[in-house]
């Protein structure tokens, strides 16, 4: 096994593309090192991306935010601007692991590990975040939901690295929120989770909405019918009822000791409803 720490994206891509055998990108290592220790993966090459120029920064651009692939979730939690504009994305990132894990883990690692229960992914999907990918063929940008294709699998080709996660500049009267259910109060994997992102008009009527569910299908679900239940209405009881019902119906969960199918369905509706209420309040709706 070789460990390298390239200083440029071009070098990192070149090394990955030119490698024979298994190559792994190392960000915070909180999934990769656990999998290596468990013997689930034995990479021949580890490409540590944390020394690449600019990758450790959160940048505010004309279009919004660019969160570098080496930005730890702890750093996201400390960004005043990001907390103000995308509190739901930040609260999701901050739920990952302990203080110790926070100091290392990244949202790109969370996305690329492709766990159906990854905490930051539903929030990113609801936020319509995009992944900026660089590879041997150049750069491309895809919606984050296009990255994980199933548990542990992604659509990234050999040599491709996600450089940053892009979030749009906020329209006025917008808010997002993320909630998960875990049996403990800290340090556990989501049994069900929900992300909601709303923009309101001046009267407090929902103009646009995105609703996502985590841990209830092989990949995070973007539930368009749930968004439709909210668009064109204030967040009245009928809209919330409908939202919960649609979300429960959209789930395709597994049945295990952490939650039965029935339980997960029910909780998906409850969490979507609560996340919508929080997102609505954050958007200034009354």
């Amino acid at each position: 096994m070789r460990y390298i720490r390239p200083l440029s994206m071009e070098d990192a891509v070149g090394q990955l593309a030119g490698s024979s055998g298994t190559a792994a990108i190392l960000a915070g290592g909180s999934d990769l090192l656990v999998r290596m220790k468990g013997g689930f993966i034995e990479p021949d090459l580890i490409v540590d991306i944390k020394a690449i120029d600019g990758l450790g920064e959160i940048r505010e651009t004309a279009e919004g935010f660019s969160i570098g692939a080496a930005v730890s979730c702890a750093l996201m939690g400390e960004s005043v601007a990001l907390n103000r504009e995308w509190p739901g994305v930040v609260e999701a990132a901050k739920l990952i692991g302990s203080k110790q894990v926070q100091g290392r883990c990244t949202i790109v690692g969370n996305l690329c590990n492709a766990s159906p229960a990854a905490d930051s992914v539903p929030a990113l999907v609801a936020a319509a975040a995009r992944a900026l990918i660089i590879g041997p063929g150049g750069r491309r940008t895809v919606p984050v939901e296009a990255v994980p294709t199933g548990p542990g699998k992604t659509s990234l080709a050999k040599g491709e690295i996600i450089e940053a996660i892009l979030l749009d500049r906020r329209a006025p009267r917008s808010g997002d929120a993320y909630l998960r259910f875990i049996p403990r109060t800290e340090m556990d994997i989501a049994v069900v989770s929900a992300g909601v992102n709303l923009t309101l008009d001046e009267q407090g009527v929902v103009k646009s909405a995105r609703v996502s569910l985590g841990a209830v299908a092989p990949t995070v679900l973007l539930v368009e019918e749930a968004a439709e239940a909210l668009i064109g209405r204030k967040l009245d009881e009928a809209a919330l009822e409908r939202l919960a019902k649609v979300c429960s119906g959209a789930c395709r969960p597994i049945d295990d000791k952490r939650g039965t199918v029935e339980f997960r369905r029910k909780v998906a509706g409850v969490l979507a409803r609560r996340a919508a209420t929080t997102a609505y309040a954050r958007a200034g709706g009354k």
Binding site: Y3, R5, L26, G28, G29, S30, L33, V34, I46, D48, K50, S72, A74, K99, Q100, V101, G103, R104
Partner: peptide, 12 residues
């Protein structure tokens, strides 16, 4: 940053 040293490589 507080971290778990079991999840950091010596090389890092």
């Amino acid at each position: 940053r507080l971290v778990c040293s079991c999840l950091v490589l010596g090389a890092e």
